[in-house]
Amino acid sequence: MKLFRRRKPPEGKSRVRRRPAAPARRILRLLAPEGVPLDFEIASLGARFTAQVLDLLLSGVLVIALVVLLSMTLSRADMVTPIPAISALLFFAVRTPYYLVSELLWNGQTVGKRIGAMRVVSANGRGLTTHQIVVRNLMKEVEVFLPMGFLLAALGDEGGLDSALSLVWVLGTLAVPVFSRRNQRIGDLIAGTVVISLPKAVLLPDLAEVAATAVPRFVFLPHQLDHYGAYELQVLEQLLQTPASTRRGEAKRHLASLATVAERIRGRIVFEDAVRPDETRDFLAAFYVAQRAHLEKRQLFGEARADKHYAAEGSAAAGARPEGKG
């Protein structure tokens, strides 16, 4: 809990520096047709690769099963069968249609994506169209399967130039999603689609409601609530929302950090009353409620306080623009 440590802000450094950077997540901001921006987390390359391998295995197994079935029925009918031809044809006829149909029917999900909780969305915020699904999967044929086939064939023939060329091609197409800003492969870029990972919605209890049931023993004065901003408030919220650990060591450490934070806050806001060790949690919860009510009220009046440096920030920026949500 370094945040609550009293520390002189180093001169001339930007606010972003002072706050620990948020974990690197790639975000896709879509404007829903209702006019509300929604933030989606872009699926990681590893997850997409796993899904791709799963899908390849699945469609491969499907083709092999069909071929075996077919050859069994044909051999019973005593016919000499061109198995390689049939399997090539089947593979071609199953591969891309598999992706097409599953993404069409499952709203941008294949089996692999479903297992990995991912989904294809349209980058323009409208629903995914059939055309987009067709284009992104047709391009997969050009991007992945064709050079892969060449590569395998060339390796078999030990052709030098061919295999080198197709290797360059494969590496090139693989590099595109690595370097593209939204992890899009070429097909995604052309179709205007992005693969996102599905968010999990977990509603934690409202701390203000939980705390309100406690006895209102701690009372804070307005000037005591002027020290912190939304960022500190939400860090405190996170600390308080941490579920009670069953392991003794962890629970002990949690209690210790609660106590540290409580001490820092008491010192900073000059809170005179003593806080008994068993009251630490109540104190923090009460402070959280009071601080949140205070900050939300300030925000309603048009003064959003992003973090504890809001005062310096306000004078430096001279109120150039009202700061957005916490």
Binding site: P199, V202, L207, R292
Partner: peptide, 30 residues
């Protein structure tokens, strides 16, 4: 605009994203 409750904001964000995907799904039959 009005709430600083991170738990609420995160939940609503995720819920709206999922609902958006459910509402604006391709309405096509094969």
């Amino acid at each position: 605009e009005i709430s600083l409750d991170k738990a609420l904001l995160a939940y609503l964000d995720a819920l709206c994203c999922r609902a958006y995907l459910a509402v604006y799904a391709p309405r096509e039959r094969l």
